[in-house]
Design a protein around this nucleic acid. Structure first.
Length: 207
DNA sequence: CCTGCGATATTCT
DNA sequence: GAATATCGCAGGC
């Protein structure tokens, strides 16, 4: 018989479930500096997380989970460590990490990463070819395209899915992380639940 | 450098 | 009908 081992799940090196089963605001802050990795058809791409936003459940008017579970937001009500992907503006997908415990309906939107591995593949996937590497992944829709994230990954588990995982990176000091209001929302727009690495503030312009 | 706007599909009122 | 957890391009400094 074949001696080929099963596809490795690479649990080693991943952030543990306990990292995600906390309040979205804590997870959003602490995700800054960790590494988002995809492995699609043998192509590996990765980036350092530099911008996040926290979305809570029934108490957060800006959250997809505000009105309780629906067909669309169902993955948000899974246990922390799962993936929530939604389609937005008729054209783009956004990638979220579910946080908290089952049924809380929390998630963290990944809004920006700094390209690390597979930059050539990122450029291929983006079609356009931005001058600077950072412009490949400095937006929630952009990083989804660059990393090859697809709707089929919606609801998957970051603990075990070989296609997408988050590995421990370098924890940033509080002085190196800035909290600001969330982007692109009209409800609860004043809450400072967006976190961004100070090093990522300069390159970013509009949006 | 900056601001404004159109694209385009699902969800909400 | 209106709104939307966006992006890239056009045009004016």
């Amino acid at each position: 018989m074949s001696s080929v081992p099963p596809i490795p799940t690479n649990i080693r090196g991943r952030l543990p479930r306990s990292f995600y089963t906390r309040d979205a605001r804590i997870v959003a802050r602490e995700l800054i500096g960790h590494i988002l990795i995809t492995e699609i058809d043998g192509v590996r791409t990765s980036g350092r997380i530099v911008e996040t936003e926290a979305y809570l459940g029934a108490e957060d008017h800006a959250s997809h989970a505000y009105r309780g579970p629906t067909n669309r937001n169902r993955p948000m009500f899974q246990a922390g460590g799962h993936v929530y992907i939604y389609f937005i503006y008729g054209m783009y997908y956004c990638f979220n990490v579910v946080t908290g415990t089952e049924d809380q309906g929390q998630a963290v939107l990944i809004r920006g990463v700094e390209p690390l591995e597979g930059i050539d593949a990122m450029r291929d996937r983006r079609g356009k070819t931005p001058r600077r590497d950072i412009d490949l992944t400095n937006g929630p829709g952009k990083l989804v395209m660059a990393l090859g994230i697809e709707a089929g990954m919606n609801g998957t588990d970051l603990m075990t899915d070989p296609r997408v995982r988050i590995k421990k990176g370098e924890m940033l000091a509080d002085d190196d992380v800035v909290a600001t209001p969330r982007i692109g929302i009209t409800k609860a727009a004043e809450l400072p639940w967006r976190w961004i690495a100070r090093s990522a503030l300069k390159p970013r312009r509009s949006t």
